[in-house]
Computed example of a mutant assay.
Amino acid sequence: MLVASSCEKVGTAPRDRADHSVVMMSTPQMVCKLQDFAVGHDDPPGADDLPRWFCYIPVGPTCRGRQNRSRPSSLPRTKLQSTGKPISMPDTYHETFENGPGGWYAWDSNYAGDKPLEIVDGSAVSRSPWWIDYNHAPPGAGYMHLLFMLDTLGRPTERKTEIAGHNNFVQQGLSTNFVDAELTFRLKGELVLHDAQLVLLCQGVHDGLCSGWLLTGQPITVTDEWTESTLNTRLDADQWTSLDSRHDRTECYGTRPLETVLSDVNTNILLVLFPLDIAPMGPLDGDPHRLRPDVDYPIWRHRLPEGYVAMDEARINFS
Rank of each mutant, 00 (worst) to 15 (best):
M25P: 02
P101D: 04
D121K: 12
G100P: 11
R66W: 01
P58E: 02
G40W: 03
T27L: 08
K79P: 00
F54E: 04
T92M: 08
D19C: 08
Q81G: 09
G103W: 10
D114N: 07
S88R: 08
P101H: 04
Y93E: 07
P76R: 08
N99W: 02
R69S: 01
V59I: 04
P58H: 04
G122S: 11
K9D: 11
I57E: 02
Q29A: 07
G60K: 00
L50I: 09
L75Y: 00
P44D: 03
K9G: 08
K85T: 09
M89L: 12
D16Y: 13
R17T: 06
E98H: 13
Y93M: 05
R15A: 14
D114Y: 10
G122Q: 14
G60P: 01
D108Q: 12
S73V: 07
P61N: 05
V22M: 09
L50F: 15
E95H: 13
V39D: 03
N68D: 13
P90C: 07
V23A: 13
D114E: 11
G103P: 03
P28L: 09
Q29H: 07
R77N: 03
Q35E: 08
D121Q: 14
V31D: 01
L80T: 05
P51D: 02
K9W: 15
V22S: 13
G103V: 07
M89S: 10
N68Y: 00
T62D: 04
H20C: 10
P14Y: 07
T27I: 12
R71A: 01
Q35P: 01
G113M: 09
T92S: 06
C55P: 01
V22K: 05
L117V: 13
G65A: 06
P45G: 08
N99Q: 15
V31C: 05
K85L: 13
A13H: 05
T62R: 01
W107V: 12
D91N: 11
L34P: 00
W104T: 03
M89C: 11
K33H: 09
S21T: 14
I57H: 03
G40A: 08
D19W: 14
F54L: 10
L34T: 05
T78H: 12
Q35N: 05
V120E: 09
A112F: 10
